[in-house]
Design a protein around this nucleic acid. Structure first.
Lengths: 112, 112
DNA sequence: ACAGTCGTGAACGATTGGGTTAACTATTTC
DNA sequence: GAAATAGTTAACCCAATCGTTCACGACTGT
């Protein structure tokens, strides 16, 4: 029973990768630009980008006029799924019964 | 420049801790119940709960009629903040200029 | 007072994850 | 064809993390 947000959260846990996501909010960037912007080496960034790719957070495309460069862009789906999950958690507080639930444990008999 | 979602994402990256959050969506639980539900040892769960506490995802309270047991409950704030961040990222696609941005890199001159 | 329960803390071992440097491939440029 | 560039892969090191077991302090019930 493994949720779809599983990989997403793991990918976003790393501050460098979250920085990449924040950078790509602006526009697509090429791999080397991302590495420079985050002040990390290209091999290190290459592996971060692979993680982001495998979890579907970004997609890569080739630059038509120069087949060496890879341009990275955000993908929508995992973020939508993550927001869904967060909203489900937030439903905890909008629930009418929440106040009751909060005290359910306190009213519990000592030895059930 | 460290975002507030930083700790939140790190805390949620662990599947056990995310499972705890999913469990607590239902109602507050005591520490030992959480450990049992997640099928992990109590010391291990104790440390997970400490992480969740320090990042503000849960709060602990004492059971009035038995000062030994600690009841854990979700806190709203970090989830709201996380949703905010996700929504900011999602704004990427609702942006009118997004289609243009997507191609900006492609149209880039070879040697700027 | 004593035995049992709840939860935490400490010490150990194993695994994972990220960074670095050094090749290596593919492509472009002259 | 030779040199330069973009990016990835590979091999290694280090630090952080998670689980386990054992011990402890706090509290409870008889």
């Amino acid at each position: 029973m493994k949720s779809s947000v599983d990989g997403t959260l793991a990918a976003l846990a790393d501050p460098t990768r979250r920085g990449v996501v924040d950078l790509l909010r602006e526009r697509p960037y090429r791999a080397s630009e991302i590495a420079d912007a985050m002040a990390t080496s290209r091999p290190a960034m290459s592996r971060h980008l692979r993680v982001l790719r495998k979890t579907g957070l970004v997609e890569e495309r080739e630059l038509p006029e120069d087949a060496r460069v890879r341009v990275y862009q955000l993908r929508q789906k995992p973020f939508t799924e993550l927001r869904s999950w967060v909203e489900e958690v937030e439903a905890f507080w909008s629930d009418q019964l929440q106040a009751f639930k909060a005290h359910a444990e306190q009213r519990r008999p000592r030895r059930p």
